[in-house]
């Protein structure tokens, strides 16, 4: 019985590993074969999918209790705020007009 359980669970782990390996292969192929924006977006998209797979299959986030879920959710929210505020500034900041540096140097 113990032996059968071990093999069943080992099979599950091997299946998950193969799935993640295939995702990594997709990521590498996309980065090397695609051009332009797709060569960046696809590998990062695959990384998000792989991380989600690890979170669900291995970290068992769907089974976590409410308190743990709040802590995990707060981390994701803070991360979103960190990136959101930084890129809101970074992508919308007006560039210093030409000649501005010369004027300030007077």
């Amino acid at each position: 019985m113990a032996r059968r359980t071990t093999f069943r669970l080992a099979g599950r782990a091997v299946g998950a590993f193969v799935a993640m390996l295939l995702l990594a292969a997709c990521s590498i192929a996309a980065a090397l074969l695609l051009d332009g924006l797709a060569a960046s977006v696809v590998p990062l998209g695959v990384a998000v999918i792989t991380a989600g797979f690890v979170a669900i299959a291995f970290m068992e986030v769907r089974k976590m209790d409410a308190v743990s879920a709040i802590f995990a959710g707060v981390a994701v929210c803070f991360l979103a705020v960190l990136f959101g505020l930084t890129f809101t500034d970074e992508l919308t900041r007006a560039h210093i007009p030409a000649g501005f540096e010369a004027r300030t140097g007077d």
Partner: peptide, 18 residues
């Protein structure tokens, strides 16, 4: 990735008390 799978396997068999 392989180590992640073996770690998950460890947790699963640990729950079974093996």
């Amino acid at each position: 990735l392989a180590s992640s799978a073996t770690m998950a396997f460890t947790v699963w068999v640990g729950r079974e008390g093996l």
